[in-house]
Simulated scan of single mutants.
Amino acid sequence: MTITKPAESVEAALPEAPVRIAAVQTVSGPDVDANLKAVDALIAEAAAEGACLVALPEYFPLISSDEMAKVRIREAEGEGPLQSFLADAARRHGVWLVGGTIPLQAEVQDKVRNSTLVFDAQGRLAARYDKIHLFGFQRAEERYDEAATIEPGSTPCCFDSPAGRTGLSVCYDLRFPELFRAMGELDLIVLPAAFTYTTGRAHWEVLLRARAIENQCYVMAPAQGGRHPNGRVTWGHSMIIDPWGEVLACREVGEGVVVSELDPARIAAVRESLPALRHRRLG
Rank of each mutant, 00 (worst) to 15 (best):
A212T: 05
A163N: 02
A34V: 11
F159R: 10
V170E: 00
V10C: 07
R280S: 14
A276V: 15
M239K: 07
G153L: 09
Y218R: 03
D242E: 05
G123H: 09
A47L: 05
D160L: 11
F85G: 05
G123S: 10
G231R: 09
Q83I: 10
D160N: 13
A249L: 06
C217H: 02
V118W: 02
P177V: 13
R211C: 06
R211K: 14
A12G: 09
Q138P: 12
A13Q: 11
K5N: 04
D31G: 07
L248N: 05
V112Y: 03
S260G: 10
S169W: 00
R128G: 05
L207K: 14
W235K: 06
Q105M: 13
I241F: 04
L56D: 01
K5I: 02
R113L: 15
P57Y: 00
A126Y: 01
E107C: 09
I3E: 00
P6C: 08
K5S: 07
G29K: 12
D173T: 08
C52E: 01
E261T: 11
E214G: 07
I213E: 03
A202C: 09
I241V: 15
I102A: 03
K111S: 06
A51C: 04
V270T: 06
R271M: 08
R280A: 12
L277N: 11
C157T: 13
R139L: 15
A265V: 09
R281E: 10
T198E: 10
R74T: 04
L53M: 11
D187K: 03
I240A: 04
Y197N: 12
Y218W: 06
F119Q: 02
S161W: 03
D263K: 13
L86F: 13
D187A: 08
H203R: 10
E185N: 13
K37P: 09
G256E: 03
T196L: 14
E272T: 14
K111P: 07
F176I: 09
S65V: 08
L208K: 07
G167S: 09
L53P: 06
V270L: 06
R251F: 03
R232K: 08
A163D: 01
V258M: 05
A23V: 03
D173V: 13
Y129T: 00
V233E: 09
F60Q: 00
P152S: 03
P6V: 12
A276Q: 14
T26W: 03
E58G: 00
A51N: 00
A148N: 10
A69F: 10
L134N: 07
A121R: 15
A55C: 09
C171R: 01
R165V: 12
A13F: 01
D33A: 14
M68C: 10
D40P: 06
T4R: 15
Y172M: 03
A41L: 14
R280K: 12
A7G: 15
